[in-house]
Amino acid sequence: MATLQADFTVPLRAFALELELDVSRTVALVGPSGAGKTSILRVIAGLLAPSRGRVSLDGERWLDTEQGLSLPPERRRVGLVFQDYALFPHLTVSGNVAFGAGGRAVDELLERFRIAHLASAHPGELSGGERQRVALARALARKPSVLLLDEPLAALDTHTKSEVRHELAELLRELALPTLLVTHDYEDAAALADEVGVLVEGRLRQLGPPAELVARPRDAFVASFTGANLLRGRARRGEGALTAIRLESGEDLYSADEVEGDVGVVVYPWEVSIARAHTPEADSALNVVRGQVGSLVEVANRVRVRVGPVTAEVTAASAARLELEAGGIAYATFKATGTRLVPL
């Protein structure tokens, strides 16, 4: 498989974007808005000139500032799908797909993306999901060697999104192109990509397979971005092999990680149990946080419950059985072994 190599610096308004990245499978960069995600795609596509850097695909150089080399966008073989899709409003669906096709089989692409029946429609008449399929078909019509996706799911409403996410994951697997996608949603990134990079203020904080980011978040930001609870406290070596962490609220938590000093206690919502009562002698979980039930939010067949500072994810059935309601008192419990400590 081909490899896209990028290494560049772009001065942005508040910080400099610095990135060194090899892409041969699907890589997703996640980060808050304003982290410089779109700029990365624009540099690779040739739409934005970095102050320094190199971009190449399998040794074919697209950009090398030291050599004063920069191929224009039309000579870089990239398929870029814009966040709002940027479909040409004055062209029909087939006109859009044919734009970069150079006489290649447009009909085939229309069939493949299930938009053949929309061939003569204009973009203004399409739904969000249909627009996305047109944008993908148009980008692929040019037979790109690299695929760049800017927030591919952000413009979709929630109920279209999960379906499109599944389709897109399938498509990316089939295409087997070096693909770089950027998103602000960690779940989208984890679902679509082989590797996920967390980007904060222009720097990559951590890059790895989604499971690794969850298992070993490098810092507090990565942890909270991947959806974990983050509780601040002070760690000291305690009884046995465990580390005790005194939280700002005064409660003690325990972790199997061995660290000292100011730390963030990381625990994922699916590792937290909820109970209406707590008896320490009847529970293997060492960590207990007692608090008021803040909010109950249904996500598919699960319920996200906020207890004090901790968010737990339990099945809808459990939530119903416990008769949880906002304002009531509940206990959030989790095991010391499911608790990771990160430097603050």
């Binding site: 739409l47 039309e74 990239v78 040409f88 980008a139 019509a141």
Partner: peptide
């Protein structure tokens, strides 16, 4: 004219 449309045309191979 939306500058993204111009950018899109360029990445689709148009000078």
């Amino acid at each position: 004219v939306d500058s993204d449309l111009v950018a899109a045309a360029r990445t689709l191979g148009s000078g």
